[in-house]
Structure formats: C-alpha cells, structure tokens
C-alpha cells in the first residue's frame, strides 16, 4: 500500500441520541505522517478516533484504514493499530510487566518474553517490572501506555490527548519518541490541546462542534486562517494591549516578550485600530508574517468548549 493513504475515510457521521457528535468528517492521512487533531473539549476528537479504530460504528460514512474496510473489517484493523486512550486504561492492579505481557498475548506477539523485556528496557523500567502499574506517576503511566500500544509494532498509532496532565519534560520526551516511530514509517493520529504539540505535527485538522473546519499541512495553517498580524511596541505595553483589546478589527492581542502581536482577519480594520494608538510614547507598528502561534490562539479563542 505504498503511496495509498493509511487512513482514507469519507463522511464519517456519529449521533448520540439526537446530537450529532461527528458531522461529515473526512480524513486522508499519508503513511508515516503525524496528523494532529486540534479542537476544544467536546468537539468530537475522541469520537472520531474511536470511529477510525472500530470502537464505534458510524451512522454514515465509509472508507478504509490500513487498506481494510472501516465498517466491515474492524478485526483486521484492530490487529494493526495501537490505541492509547485519553484516560489511563491499563490494569492498575497488574504489575508493569504483567500489563505488557497481557497486551503482547492479546496480539499474539511472537517471541513474547523477549519483546516484553525489550519494551521494559526501552522504558527504562527494567528493574521495576514487578511494580504495580497503579503506583506509577502520571508521566510514567503515559510512557507505559505508549509502550503497551506499541508492543505489537502497529502500523498506525491513535493517541487521544496522550500528554494531558504530563509535565513539559515528559511531554518533550514523548514527542521525541513519536518522531522516531514516524521515521520508521509508523503513522500517527494524535489529538491535543497544546499548541507546542500541534506544531510538532505534519498535518493539522481543526475540529469544532463535530465538523472539520481546517485541514492542511501545518505550515499552511496560518495562511488558511487568513490572519494579518502587526507587531506593536510601546513604552507602556500593557496600556497599549488594554486599549487594543475589544477594538473593532482586533481579533487577537498576544504578548511575545517585549512586543505585542496584534492580529485580525480584516486587514483594513486592524490597521485602523492599531493606527489609533499613534502618539503613545515609543509606539511603532510593523507588519509581520502571521505565525502558527497566532493562528492557534485565534482558532482556540474563537471556539469555546463545545460541551452542552
């Protein structure tokens, strides 16, 4: 299946009761890509991932995952994916080794004992294999969970907010790991809240209210969002920011060190608003290329939590 997308689904729709949680979502994820799912709480990220791995049956939609029909061949798909749930879902009353061994058995991993040993060593937990998983800290649980869903060398990783509640150092280590897998050709679909994680992805899909709003290679995202950004400096930076917030045409005021990035979709209105500050001591405004950060902040602030 070289060249063919690993995930190729069209029009996925899922309703719970009368509420449409995922609405006509299509995804094409090429092999080896890290594909980021961005969106506020309740926007349908988890449900979409569950639809892709066969944990939920879509009401509408079709397509293939790893070349298998997503509706009829979920058993074949499951054998070749690794799914890491949002909440830790290994057995807290089993030891680290027992958890890995259990998962390895479920996937009929050949040369199991050796594979489990290797996984423990990779984790740096070779001497703590007998410790109960429930006693691990959040960061270690997350690394164990990743090791567990990689134990059968899957072709596709589905990670649902894998680094929620994990400290920045552990998060960076985690992403280095994902990068190494990607280099080996493992495809990753990952949902996240964090901007610094989103920039690690090759592709970004932004979801709100169950609908996919943006889907593009990460570097094209700022252009898609269509923001104009001005860099503003002034002696009284806080005063300037306070004045700009809420002015027509100003969608975003973000402080970056000693300067403000002021962004808006309507370029003319934005310039007018920023121009009104002329005369403040030390004021200067220069156009800059809109970055990913502004684009994400804009996207995230535009859409509040989708809980109802």
């Amino acid at each position: 299946m070289n060249g063919a997308p690993v995930i190729d689904v069209r029009g996925l729709t899922k309703r719970f009761g009368g509420k449409t949680v995922v609405d006509d979502v299509s995804l094409r994820v090429p092999r080896g890509a890290i594909y980021g799912f961005l969106g506020p709480n309740g926007s349908g990220k988890t449900t979409t991932i569950r639809l892709v791995c066969g944990l939920l049956r879509p009401d509408h939609g079709e397509g293939t995952v790893l070349g298998h029909d997503v509706l009829r061949e979920s058993a074949l798909i499951k054998a070749r994916i690794g799914y890491m749930t949002q909440k830790f879902s290994l057995y807290e009353d089993l030891s680290i080794r027992e958890n890995l061994d259990f998962v390895a058995r479920l996937y009929d991993v050949p040369d199991r004992a050796h594979r489990v040993d290797t996984a423990l060593e990779d984790l740096g937990l070779a001497t703590r294999g007998r410790q109960l998983a429930g006693t691990l800290s959040g960061g270690w649980k997350q690394r164990l969970a990743l090791a567990a869903c990689m134990i059968h060398d899957p072709d596709l990783l589905l990670l649902d907010e894998p680094t929620a509640g994990v400290d920045p150092k552990a998060r960076r280590d985690f992403w280095d790991q994902i990068r190494r897998y990607a280099a080996r050709g493992v495809t990753t679909l990952v949902s996240t809240h964090y901007m610094d994680e989103a920039v690690q992805c090759d592709f970004i899909a932004f979801i709100a209210y169950g609908r996919k709003l943006i889907d593009a290679p990460t570097r094209e995202i700022p252009g898609k969002v269509g923001l104009t950004t001005l860099r503003v400096v002034a002696d009284d930076l806080e005063g300037a920011a306070a004045k700009l917030r809420g002015m027509p045409g100003v969608d975003l005021v973000a402080r970056f060190g000693t300067e403000l990035h002021v962004a808006g979709v309507d370029a003319a209105k934005l310039r007018a608003a920023v121009g009104s500050l002329d005369g403040m001591p030390g004021f200067a405004a220069t156009p800059v290329e809109a970055g990913l950060e502004e684009a994400f902040i804009h996207l995230m602030t535009e859409s509040t939590d989708n809980m109802q």
């Binding site: 066969g54 799914y83 879902s89 290994l90 057995y91 807290e92 998962v103």
Partner: peptide
C-alpha cells in the same frame, strides 16, 4: 468502570 474496557476492545480479542 475502570476504563480498561476501551483498551481491551481496541485489541483483536473476540
């Protein structure tokens, strides 16, 4: 209740 069902069902177990 413990949330482990989701992981179990994501494996090929019948």
């Amino acid at each position: 209740e413990r949330g482990t069902m989701e992981s179990l069902l994501a494996t090929p177990v019948r």
